[in-house]
Write a protein that binds this DNA or RNA. Structure first.
Lengths: 198, 198
DNA sequence: ATGGATATGATGCAAGTGCATCGGAAAACA
DNA sequence: TGTTTTCCGATGCACTTGCATCATATCCAT
């Protein structure tokens, strides 16, 4: 038996390297050589992990999609003290919008993939899936708010969730475009959520 | 005196070619050779028009920024029959969100530039400028709606404009990501504007 | 016509790309 | 320890890239 390697782990480490490179200088600047160097492995190792570059990028998208979803879900699941639905909603959306300083990298990567998805069916499929899940999550939170009486019953949770997600993603774009600072974006987001309540 | 060429016109034609290519297969797939072929000129002509590829891309961004702004402004200026402020607002935002089928190309290009701007200061400056102008435009429309009595006085036009622009851009992203059809996105946008009125 | 300034486009070039290949290193068994 | 099986990483290869070069074609004032 030959030496065994934890491929999943290595794949994740390579994915992180790819994200770093994409955030630093855009998706077209990602070459297999640079990825290998950034991940501190040889090019051969990268090639062994992923059959082609396209496969690699697909894995990276799935990786970050999963991370975003998981973080949002955990934020809700681990709410130790029973929080107001509005707070939960606001915090979850802020997380999804990748507003805090440390998430700027992920925001860049996310947008890069959206841009690319227009020209790549597989990437588009992953994105479609992820957005469906995120929408479901937000709609659930809105319904929860209606149950606690914080959000008016007459609102359609599905529709409101669509708007909320749009605001969140729009603000992500605005921060990336330099139109807003993360702080301002956050306050705009909060105000929109508060507006739901009255 | 040698033969004279209308450089501005040629630059615009080349810019259109670049947009077509970006929309078709992403920004990294844009090579000078492809641009020349698409614009039906020789590579030498492209090189004469733009000192470097970066210069070319910068011009393209300025070009489409201008086009978007102009279209939105004209939409307002040429409103022959005095329209309801709400209608004007809704239509203008729909235009900015590049929702209709024919604008998908521009949406892709726009997003590609936003993605790139993170790694390029000059592009970022142009984007910043454009967004500032667009925000001003929307805020003006909100104030106009307040003057006609359609929009409640107690709302802050600046803040509302920020949210409106975020919804518009968020929907652009969602359509591009395949999360919404343009029609659904439009209805979400309309509903959000209607929500302002009551 | 003619001279001269300018635009053109084919070609060259070094650098970088993704991917294929393969000799040998490394580890788990016997 | 020796064998076997997997993995690694250096190298090669065909191709594309952005940009520089330069002989040629093109046009205008004389």
């Amino acid at each position: 038996m030959p030496r065994q390697v934890d491929y999943e782990d290595r794949r994740r480490r390579i994915a992180e390297a790819v994200c770093t490179l994409i955030a630093r200088s855009g998706m077209e600047a990602v070459s297999l050589r640079d990825v290998a160097a950034q991940a501190n492995v040889s090019m051969g190792a990268v090639q062994r992990c992923f059959r082609t570059k396209e496969d690699m990028l697909l894995f990276v998208l799935e990786h970050i999609s999963q991370r975003v979803s998981e973080r949002a879900n955990q934020r809700i699941a681990t709410a130790s003290t029973p929080q107001a639905a509005a707070t939960l909603l606001s915090h979850t959306l802020a997380e999804l919008a990748l507003l805090d300083e440390g998430s700027q990298t992920q925001a860049r990567v996310w947008l890069a993939f959206i841009t690319h998805a227009s020209a790549n069916e597989k990437l588009a499929a992953v994105l479609h899936d992820t957005y469906a899940k995120l929408h479901e999550l937000i709609a659930w939170l809105v319904r929860y708010g209606q149950n606690t009486g914080e959000i008016p019953q007459h609102l359609d949770p599905t529709r409101e969730a669509h708007t909320l997600l749009a605001v969140a993603d729009g603000l992500t774009v605005h921060v990336l475009a330099g139109h807003h600072s993360p702080e301002v974006a956050l306050s705009i987001l909060r105000r929109h959520v508060d507006h739901l309540l009255q």
